[in-house]
Design a protein around this nucleic acid. Structure first.
Lengths: 342, 342
DNA sequence: CTGTTAGCGCCTTCAT
DNA sequence: ATGAAGGCGCTAACAG
């Protein structure tokens, strides 16, 4: 057991006091560059790593993390909220305070407005479900430039200066759905349809892209019908999918990219078309039930609990200057069939 | 922000000192039942939860966790070791010391021998890859009865008094493989084969059971060949699978339940039989590569990193009396195809 | 059986 | 720009 290196060791080695070491470690002002340099050398030399327990203990949980979520009411969104709640409790006890704010879904200006209120002294870190939008991007950059780390969750703003994105690669998710579709189909002459939530939401566009790419490449003989829009709305979905089933008695498969699957499931139940391969996103009580009784054949899933915890951990790591365990943070594109349901 | 309840609050409320609160909280002896009761009531009443940071800080990382692993040299086993190493470092800095010991795989007596050395004063918690064996079970019970929590990892000893099992349900894993096999098959008149590592290893038996059950139930027309044994050994596997491919030119699928897949992949590569649906367990560099170039069609996976971290967290929770976040600890039966590889 | 006291390693005033 | 000292909440000796 090698003794643990403390800030005191570093202080002694650098010929300063622990207060100065602390200042350097936390990047606070008021240290002559030369002194800081000596401290850094001592840290390096001794292999000092600060003890986050002691750190957070003495800091008395004073950090503030702000979370911004869209106000949509899909089950996935509900799950996210729940998980944030849970994570907040967990981290509150061991480190932080968390403020959650909802912004209007699909309305970047509203998010931008909310982000305006983020200031250095009231906020130490930000987690948000972003959109790939110029104004959102510059808002993120403003915050980031103030030295406040930003983590995007589930939906990214790729060109912004966020510290991390936590979520899946939606193109790959679409490809995965395509692979399963191609292989699950019994008769590759029967056409396959796909329904987006919206043609304008980046995630949906990417999933669709991945799906269509893969189908064209690996299952070129399968006819793909023009994509439909269901607006993440159960009623609309039921109508759209109902019409689809009626119009195509030979439909081979359906890939539902967005939410509102309650409606799609209903449409299937109404017509009793169990032979259509039906693939959706996100495991919920509903999709679980539908997978059990054979309406849904596979669900592509991302674990909101994992995502939320990961976002918090990454933000913490950013704040603490702790190393990141990437293997633990990699969000999986999960596949569920009837037999591996959790 | 409600003030945080400390042990001091509890002490005051119960009319005792913090030392006594500490004794009660940690189940140490030397407290009159009546006093303990008063403390417990105060805890309940104030909603006190002990701060694990302060706790572990003041304890000076003195806990000892012992880990027992089989000495087999599969890639999965290597991954486990690595992850334990990583977890040990992580937890060493924030809580514990970890001792890892290898025992001879498939030799319960050797494990039992090692477990004999576990004593109260040199060990606070145990993690082990168990086997379902009478002697192992009673060893676990002995340790458990001393008040040392035991967590089984990857392979369980179900009837023993372990605190938790961290791993997948292997019957469900087998069923999942069966589902994919049934749906991936192009022609359901072509026979399907399966190779175990050994007919005697519980995990393999369970996977096989799940697989065969599901095939018989949901794909009854598919002929299933008698199971083979590959002894988790690449050379043996190459030979067995090679012979299989030769004997059955019309083979439709192969489910490899155990390790040694290097050999199986080699056999496939030798014969160029890309049309056989090949499903294996555990994602490794090898299986990843084989999935990329189309030899393997799907991999059923359990994440060793997740499993190891989970085992440590559960043991800690047991030791600290902290609540467990079950959603975080549920080990998934993961499915990988070409498109959702991490 | 129970209380007192001195840390654990770091951060935060408050001086200098 | 830097240091000294007290405290975060809990545990471990040591008294009594």
């Amino acid at each position: 057991m090698t003794r643990i290196i403390t800030s005191e060791d570093v202080a002694r080695q650098a010929g300063v006091s622990t207060a100065t070491v602390d200042r350097v470690m936390n990047g606070r002002a008021g240290v002559r560059p030369a002194t800081a340099e000596r401290v850094l050398q001592a840290v390096e030399m001794l292999g000092y790593v600060r003890d986050t327990r002691a750190s957070s203990l003495s800091r008395r949980n004073k950090r503030k993390i702000w979370v911004f979520l869209p106000d949509s009411n899909t089950s996935f969104r509900a799950a996210l909220s729940e998980e944030i709640e849970a994570a907040a409790m967990e981290f509150a006890r061991s480190c932080d305070l968390v403020d959650v704010q909802a912004y209007m879904a699909f309305e970047p200006e509203d998010l931008v407005r909310s982000l305006k209120s983020v200031e250095r002294d009231s906020c130490d870190g930000v987690i948000l479900v972003a959109t790939d939008d110029d104004d959102v991007r510059s808002s993120i950059n403003r915050i980031s430039d103030m030295g406040i780390p930003v983590v995007t969750l589930v939906s990214d703003s790729p060109r912004a200066g966020r510290a991390h994105y936590v979520g899946i690669d939606n193109i790959a998710a679409g490809r995965t759905a395509g692979r399963l579709m191609g292989r699950f189909l019994i008769d590759d002459r029967r056409p396959v349809a796909l329904v987006c939530g919206s043609f304008l939401v980046r995630d949906h566009v990417e999933r669709r892209l991945g799906f269509e790419q893969l189908m064209h490449k690996d299952f070129p003989q399968v006819p793909i019908l023009p994509a439909l829009e269901g607006f993440d709305d159960p009623a609309k979905m039921e109508q759209v999918v109902g019409a689809l089933l009626q119009a195509h008695p030979d439909l081979g498969g359906l890939y539902s990219i967005g939410a509102g699957n309650r409606g799609a499931i209903q449409a299937f139940a109404n017509t009793g078309r169990g032979d259509v391969v039906f693939i959706t996103h996100e495991l919920t009580d509903l999709s679980r039930e539908a997978i059990r009784n054979g309406i849904i054949d596979a669900v592509i899933h991302q674990d909101p609990g994992h995502e939320v915890r990961s976002a918090f951990r990454l933000l913490q790591a950013e704040l603490d200057g702790t190393p990141i365990r990437w293997e633990q943070e990699r969000i999986r594109i999960e596949i569920f069939v009837k037999d591996n349901l959790p």
